[in-house]
Amino acid sequence: EVYKVKIKIERVLPNGEKVEEEITIEVEGMSEEELLALARELAAEPGVRIKEIEIEKLPP
């Protein structure tokens, strides 16, 4: 199964400015739980906050 994972994050820059970013990846052969863990890892940097995680199962 192939999933499209869209992660919206908010990053706080050293000057205090907040910037929103969106990361989209396609992943194959992982469960939804593994995808959530991967998304959290991607956003685990200091000053980064996850705003939204969207997981979509793509048709075969």
Rank of each mutant, 00 (worst) to 15 (best):
R49F: 07
E20R: 02
P59M: 12
E32W: 14
E10I: 04
R11W: 04
E21I: 05
E1Y: 13
E28K: 08
E17T: 12
P46N: 05
A37P: 02
Y3C: 03
G47F: 05
E32T: 15
E26F: 08
I50A: 00
V48C: 01
L36C: 11
V5E: 00
P14R: 03
L35I: 14
E41T: 10
E20I: 05
E21P: 01
P59V: 12
A44I: 12
K6N: 06
K51T: 13
L58V: 06
V19G: 03
G16V: 01
I23T: 02
I25F: 14
Y3F: 12
I25A: 04
E56F: 13
I25H: 03
K4R: 15
I50Y: 01
E22R: 03
E10L: 03
K8I: 09
V48F: 03
I9S: 01
K18R: 13
A44H: 08
E26G: 05
I23A: 02
E33N: 09
I55V: 05
E33V: 15
L38C: 14
A39C: 10
E54L: 15
K6H: 10
A39F: 07
P60F: 02
I7H: 00
K18H: 15
S31W: 11
V12T: 15
V27E: 04
G47H: 04
K57N: 04
E1C: 15
E10H: 02
L38H: 07
P14K: 06
P46I: 06
A37D: 10
K6P: 00
T24G: 03
E10V: 04
I50N: 00
G16K: 02
I53P: 00
A43R: 02
P14L: 10
L36R: 05
P59T: 14
R40D: 09
E34K: 06
K4H: 05
E45P: 03
G47P: 01
T24K: 08
E22S: 07
V27R: 07
R49N: 10
G16I: 01
L42S: 04
E22A: 10
V48K: 01
L42M: 14
K51S: 05
P59L: 08
E56A: 11
E26T: 08
I50Q: 00
P14Q: 07
K4N: 04
I53R: 00
I7N: 00
E54W: 11
A43I: 14
G47A: 04
E20S: 04
E20P: 04
R11H: 02
G16S: 03
V12E: 12
Y3P: 01
E56L: 13
